[in-house]
Amino acid sequence: MSGTEHLTIPQKINLTIREAAEYSNIGINKIDELLKEPGCSFVLYVGTKKLVKREAFEKFLKKEIEI
């Protein structure tokens, strides 16, 4: 893959908080709040950076009716 090609969100394993917000129509602050909850199944820490595990995030959203 050359430097000019970009993966689409469904092709990515992990998303930034901004990408997850765009993908889900949930605000950045709300996603950040969810990532801070103990036992969050879709957070991945890379140093101090938080990423969203896309598939686990999708599963979480499919089973929730309110966040």
Rank of each mutant, 00 (worst) to 15 (best):
M1Q: 10
S2H: 13
S2W: 06
S2R: 10
T4S: 14
T4Q: 11
E5D: 07
L7I: 02
L7R: 06
T8C: 00
T8F: 13
T8L: 12
I9K: 07
P10D: 13
P10A: 00
N14I: 03
N14F: 12
T16H: 10
I17Q: 14
A20S: 09
A20G: 13
A20H: 10
A21N: 01
E22N: 12
E22W: 10
Y23W: 15
Y23H: 14
S24I: 05
S24M: 00
S24R: 04
S24C: 05
G27R: 13
G27H: 09
I28A: 03
I28Y: 12
N29K: 13
K30G: 00
I31T: 04
I31Q: 07
E33Y: 14
L35F: 15
E37H: 00
E37M: 11
P38F: 01
G39E: 04
C40K: 09
L44H: 12
L44C: 07
Y45R: 15
V46S: 07
V46A: 11
G47V: 02
G47S: 02
K49Q: 06
K49T: 04
K49C: 00
K50M: 08
K50N: 02
L51M: 14
L51G: 10
K53P: 01
K53E: 02
R54M: 04
E55N: 13
A56W: 01
F57T: 03
K59R: 15
K59P: 02
K59S: 06
F60A: 00
L61A: 01
L61N: 14
K63A: 02
E64K: 14
I65W: 07
